[in-house]
Structures are given as C-alpha cells and as structure tokens.
Amino acid sequence: MTALVKVRDLRMHFPINSGLLRRQTGAVKAVDGVSFDILEGETLGLVGESGCGKSTCGRAVLRLYDITGGTIEIDGRAIEHLSQSDLRQMRTTMQMVFQDPQASLNPRMTVGAIIGEPLLEHTNLSRAEREEQVQVLMDQVGLNRAFVNRYPHEFSGGQRQRIGIARALALNPKFIVCDEPIAALDVSIQAQVVNLLEELQDRLGLTYLFISHDLSMVRHIADRVAVMYLGKVVELAPRDALYDAPLHPYTEALLSAVPEPDPALAGQKKGRIVLQGDVPSPANPPEGCNFCTRCPRVMDVCRRIDPEFREVAPGHWAACHLHDAEYNANAGQTA
C-alpha cells in the first residue's frame, strides 16, 4: 500500500500582534514540525488534549490555512503552495467532517441543498441528476429520503452529523479529515456514527484522519495512532503497539488517566499517573522537550535539548530522550 497523504515538517504559526503599530511580537506555534504518512485505506487517529494543535493540524493538512512551512502531498500532488483556485480542484479528493454539526450546517439551507452544494460547485450534473445523487448519498449515511426538504434544526445531533458526512462524501473523495466528529454527541449516538464511518470506509475505500480526544474511541477506529502534545507529534505507532506498550511518558500518562468503566479494575488500577500542572502556552513553549515541565521521568538533558522524532521500534516512532541510548543507559531495554 502506498501513502495517500504525506506530511513533512508541517508548521502552522499564528502571529501575535501587539502595540500601537500592531507589529508582530510573537507567534502561537499551534503546529510545529509535524510529519506523518497516511496509507491508502487506513485510519490515522490523532489524539491529544485540547489546545495541543490537533484540529489546526487537520485543517492545515487540507490547506484551510495558509501554512507557515513544511510540505503536504495528497494523492501524489504537492499542495503546500497551490493557489486557491488550484486547491478548489483538489477539494474533490479531500474533504472534511467538522466537529460541531450544529455550527457547520447552514440553518437556512435544506438538507438537500446542503448535500447537493458540492455537486453544484464541482460537477456539471443536471438538476435531476443532482437530486438523484443527493438521495443516494442520504441512503448511504442512513438518512430517510423523505427528509430531503427539511432544515438542519429539525434533526437530532447524530442525524446532523450524518448530514455533514453525506456532504463530505458527495464528491467521492479519497481522503476525509474527521475533526472530532463525535465529540458533541451522546455515548449511545457516538457508536452509531463511528460504525457508519467504518462501514463507509469498507465500502468506499476511504482514508481517514480521525481527530479526537477520546482515546477509547480512537482505539476502536484507528489503524495507527499519533499522539500530539503542544504542537508536536510525540508518538506515532500502530494501534495495538501504542495502547499496549506506549513509549512516550505523555502517552503513558494519557492512557492511565482514562477512567475504566469497570469498578473492579478502577480500584486496583495500579500506578495511575496524575500529571501535575497544565499545558504550557504554545506561544511560549519551554526550552528543550515540550513535555519537560510535566514529565514524571524528566532528566536534565530534557530541559536543554529537544528530542528528535525517531523510529524506536519498527513502525513505532517517539520523540523522547528515554529511548536515546546516548542519554539513557537503559534505553535498549525499554524500547
């Protein structure tokens, strides 16, 4: 399988302007040097706490922002410098499902108009063909065809998210960025939407970048998982390797903080790692490793040198000095 999406050293800095002349006095480094590949037909999960830059990363990959630096290649085409008009043509291969189904659907458009809009923009279908296509899409995501003339407010949260998914599917894209598609939904509805996304992937061979802060859901849907912290990917590994044997202390802490829905396990959950303090500001990240202010296993070197993102085990990447033989004598055993 080949990589459909290749991202190298992606950087997205938002300028901070202050003072009388609004000069740039700094930058929020929301995404700071992120690299990953997504293979065709796979789901890459992107997890992290709020404010770590995962949504910005997802949007930057689709060039919804003018990125600060790095390269992005989607379906064999470099898009980091494409103009807006060239990007429009690329949009048929790459689409997005947004977090808040309430806010991302125009309340004045009917469902049919929302789902049909990409077709209107990008294809030359006749009105009848378009309406036919909209109905097919509604079937695909499990919406009743009879609702085509209803407005978004007449639907529940889960159904609205289905509308958002149908809209993303309209142009037969290869790659879809799902930005926290289930965060705003109830538990029992979340499972419905996740199952729908999986079914569509099987049927249409889609590739997903699945952004979420819900580690248990990501474990279910993703093939490989990337963990972000303060604008950087700190660990990237196949799902089972990441959840069974995390290499980065942040991943470890994150996993141990997820409450287990089983009182027997919760009681004996040994060594729950409770991180102290808050995430530092991305405008002013600490020197050295970004995680050094909260890391339970911090070493002197972490405060000076930023660890390199290296392949520690086959397919398992991590950015941590603990797995660096030069700084940690036990590196061989832990890796």
Binding site: D186, S188, A191, Q192, S216, R219, H220, E260
Partner: peptide, 21 residues
C-alpha cells in the same frame, strides 16, 4: 456495551443503541 475501552480485547464492531432518546 457501547463504550469501547482502552485496554482488553477490541470488539470488531461497536454495539449501538438504535434510535433516538
């Protein structure tokens, strides 16, 4: 049954509660 876990066996498909509240 609908909630996946971060440990233990991973179900092939999530159980869902059909319908709406």
């Amino acid at each position: 049954k609908t909630i996946p876990s971060v440990s233990g066996a991973r179900a092939k498909k999530l159980q869902v509660i059909e319908g709406q509240p």
